[in-house]
Each structure stands twice: as structure tokens, then as C-alpha cells.
């Protein structure tokens, strides 16, 4: 029989965590069936709920701790509240959330302008790094964009000329 330890001795740590009994492995390995008792465990202290926290309708309550990064607000908040009336099993949950995210981007720009901040899109998109490490690629993309824009403008202008020509007949 092949001596695997010898074969792989150049690889530090080879086989040190091998366990023939590693089956079923994680995540079933430490199964205790604790959940058979239902939602009965002693819950941690509840974080005071003094902001709006949307919670999945697949659970009965707000978790003992929760994040406060960006409570729902504005039009995107209205859409998110609608989404959370539907379960995680439904497209009516996830698709409105994606829509809300896009609406939220516009709200973010409005918020910036309303607080006197002009978003520096060039910097936010990391074009400084792109310029430093991929000048050719960036210039190529800009050239393609310029070419496409120019072509579109030319085509639109031509169409106007044709219309005028047809009209004379």
C-alpha cells in the first residue's frame, strides 16, 4: 500500500486534521436536536427598539440585538416596508428590496446635494486606482464610450436630415 505520509512529507501539516470518522462532518457533526424544544431558549437581553426595525415574517419578533446602520426612510423605506409584508420565500420580498436599493441611490444623491455635498463620482468609483494601474484599459473604455456616443449623435442627426429630405417630396 502506498505510504501517503512519505509521499506528502514536503507539505507541512499534511494529514494532521484527517479523520476517517469525519462523516457526517460539519454542519451536522454537533447535532443536539436542541431546536426540537422550539423557540424556548433563554434569550439575551433585548436591545431597546427605539428605531424602526423591519423583521422577517418568518420569525415572531425582533432579534435580541440588531443593526442600526440605515433605518428605512423616504420612498425606498416605503418600498422596503411593503417587501417585509412578504416572506423570504416570495419574490414579492426580494424584488421590491432590489428596487428600493436603486431608489435609495437616487435618494442618496439628493441627500448629498441637499447638504451641500457634490458627490465626486470619479473618486467614489476608484478611478484613481484604475488610472494608476490600468491606464490603457481606462483610456480604451473612455474611447469606446466616446465613439459610441459620437456614433449615436451622428445617427440621430442623419435621421433628422432624412426626415427633412422625405418631407420635400
Amino acid at each position: 500500500m502506498e505510504n501517503l505520509e512519505e509521499k506528502y512529507k514536503h507539505i507541512k501539516g499534511w494529514g494532521i486534521d484527517a479523520d476517517p470518522k469525519n462523516d457526517p462532518t460539519y454542519p451536522m457533526k454537533h447535532r443536539t436536536n436542541e431546536e426540537h424544544k422550539g423557540y424556548t431558549w433563554e434569550r439575551p437581553t433585548q436591545q431597546p427598539i427605539n428605531i424602526e426595525v423591519l423583521h422577517s415574517i418568518e420569525r415572531p419578533n425582533v432579534t435580541a440585538v440588531f443593526g442600526t446602520a440605515a433605518p428605512p426612510s423616504g420612498l425606498s423605506g416605503v418600498i422596503r416596508r411593503y417587501a417585509f409584508k412578504h416572506s423570504e420565500n416570495s419574490y414579492l420580498h426580494w424584488l421590491p428590496l432590489i428596487l428600493a436599493d436603486r431608489v435609495n441611490v437616487v435618494e442618496g444623491i439628493i441627500e448629498d446635494f441637499s447638504t451641500g455635498k457634490v458627490p465626486n463620482i470619479f473618486a467614489e468609483k476608484g478611478y484613481v486606482a484604475e488610472w494608476k494601474h490600468n491606464k490603457t484599459g481606462l483610456l480604451t473604455r473612455m474611447a469606446i464610450l466616446a465613439a459610441v456616443t459620437t456614433t449615436a449623435l451622428v445617427l440621430l442627426t442623419r435621421k433628422d436630415d432624412d426626415d427633412e429630405y422625405d418631407y420635400e417630396y
Partner: peptide, 15 residues
């Protein structure tokens, strides 16, 4: 059960 990535008391928004 050491399923620390699946805690039931840390995420209200999704199960």
C-alpha cells in the same frame, strides 16, 4: 450546536 454562523438572535431581517 456550534452553528455560530446561523445564530437566531442576531438578524431580524432574514431567517
Amino acid at each position: 450546536q456550534e452553528l455560530y454562523g446561523n445564530c437566531h438572535e442576531a438578524n431580524s431581517q432574514a431567517t
